[in-house]
Nucleic acid binder design. Structure first.
Lengths: 132, 132
DNA sequence: GATGGGGTTCCAGTTACGGGAAGGTCAAGA
DNA sequence: TCTTGACCTTCCCGTAACTGGAACCCCATC
């Protein structure tokens, strides 16, 4: 199977697949014409990567997850630990974004949003004390 | 004032300030020795940038915000519109992260996390149907 | 034989800096 | 006066995970 079809089946663009090969995540064999020849196992692996990435795992996490997946003697504890760490990072990001959101949303609500220049948003960013 | 002190007062590392100068966000004059000589207004501008960045605005947004800030005839509607767009992006990111979080958290809960290889997390990423 | 749609490699750009090298400047102490 | 040590300068590379594009090759079809 050529790269585009493999990508279609795995849900990944060809560019991404080439990149994954470059960094050693997949190693499809080559046809005599130099084209990558994807086997079922390669496509499966690519789909695995796509789903892991969709869950927000980094490429290095994906590399680890792949090796765990392929290791029949893995301990599920190792997978769980990795997932937990990632979950903690997600939580941290959500918290940071929610902080931003709260501040910004408050400022937006206080801004008249008309033709006049007075703007609590700018005042706040400028470090001025904005009266409540 | 030299770069380190300006950074201390604005809450930014020197590297960041040099970068901001490079991309034209600030233009402190130079002393005869070539050192950047920050005025109060420069420090204030840097602090403005720091706070805008802390709210998650991109550098380009910051550039726009700065020009609005310095424009006495601005309309607060323009500031509000920019803030609203940014708020929408934040909301989108939060939503995406919460989706990830929900899926991942569910999988983590279902994983025994022991010495055995069976792992709903890997099964799910591999695309297998995991029984509820 | 031309055309169109694959494929290939390689290089540059993205965001917002951080690290580090090589070298100039300055104030203070021996 | 000389020497530290702490500044400052520029310049270049590296980050994450791709994406876009150029230049070129391959294959099937009309």
């Amino acid at each position: 199977m050529n790269i585009k079809d493999a990508g279609a089946r795995a849900g990944l663009p060809a560019k991404t697949i080439r990149y994954y090969e470059e960094i050693g995540l997949v190693t499809p064999p080559r046809d005599t014409n130099g084209y990558r020849a994807f086997r079922e196992a390669d496509v499966h692996k690519l789909a695995f990567l796509g789903r892991a990435r969709a869950l927000g795992f980094t490429i290095e996490d994906c590399r680890t997850l792949l090796s765990l997946w392929e290791d029949d003697s893995r301990a599920s504890a190792d997978v769980k630990a990795l997932a937990r760490e990632h979950l903690a990072e997600i939580d941290a990001k959500i918290a940071a974004l929610q902080d931003m959101r709260a501040t910004l949303s408050d400022l937006v609500d206080r801004c008249a949003g008309d033709h006049r220049p007075d703007c609590p948003i700018l005042q706040s960013i400028a470090g001025d004390q904005v009266p409540t």
